[in-house]
Write a protein that binds this DNA or RNA. Sequence first.
DNA 1: ACAGTAGTTCGATGGCTGTCAAAGCCTCGA
DNA 2: TCGAGGCTTTGACAGCCATCGAACTACTGT
Lengths: 105, 105
Amino acid sequence: MRALHHPDLASVELATLLNALADPVRLQVVGQLAAAGGVVCGGFDVPVSMSTLSHHLKVLREAGLVRVTPQGSFRQHELRLAEIEEHYPGVLPPILAAARRGERP
Amino acid sequence: MRALHHPDLASVELATLLNALADPVRLQVVGQLAAAGGVVCGGFDVPVSMSTLSHHLKVLREAGLVRVTPQGSFRQHELRLAEIEEHYPGVLPPILAAARRGERP
DNA sequence: ACAGTAGTTCGATGGCTGTCAAAGCCTCGA
DNA sequence: TCGAGGCTTTGACAGCCATCGAACTACTGT
């Protein structure tokens, strides 16, 4: 499999990070990642096709928001909370809280 | 002049708010608004044309981020900090801080 | 009334983006 | 080795978006 690049948070623009979060589907994804402690793999509950979900996960990864680690034929996704907190302190937690508050089916 | 609509923050989606902030120019604008206490009118220091700036200010206004009040032939822009804080507590301040930290000419 | 200044809107354009189905990889288990 | 499951990539497409110059509106001062 390909290299699976994760950018250094220092090289990620704030606008890029916010842009990655500025989509309802991706907001749902990070919300579920935060709720599940990052253990979820492809079992996300989102209203899009598999290929579209894959695209969104790629956007999140390239924005430095999630780390993807292949484990067998699965892939584990987790939020890079600590690193983000280091470079953009205080930015992510309130957004996660608002996202969690905002999804009630 | 037209009605100059300002949305109720309760009807603004989180994704909309983040999307309004997910642009370098608009991030600069809100950064300067935060720094200047919201008194600036059209004296923004941004690398785009007047019409483009006007477009960005419209996006920010329709996302509930700024309030625009016509004063004579000028227009005063200010952040709706308190209202945003009420509906999305803790979201804006860290972003403003990061934006301020991120612009050094 | 007139000219000037502040700002918006229009029309056009090129680029980016979210979406899907279909085809392609990897990895595991039989 | 073969098949199946899990995920990615490709190709295509429609819609949105940032950008500009030019035309337009609105207000002020003379």
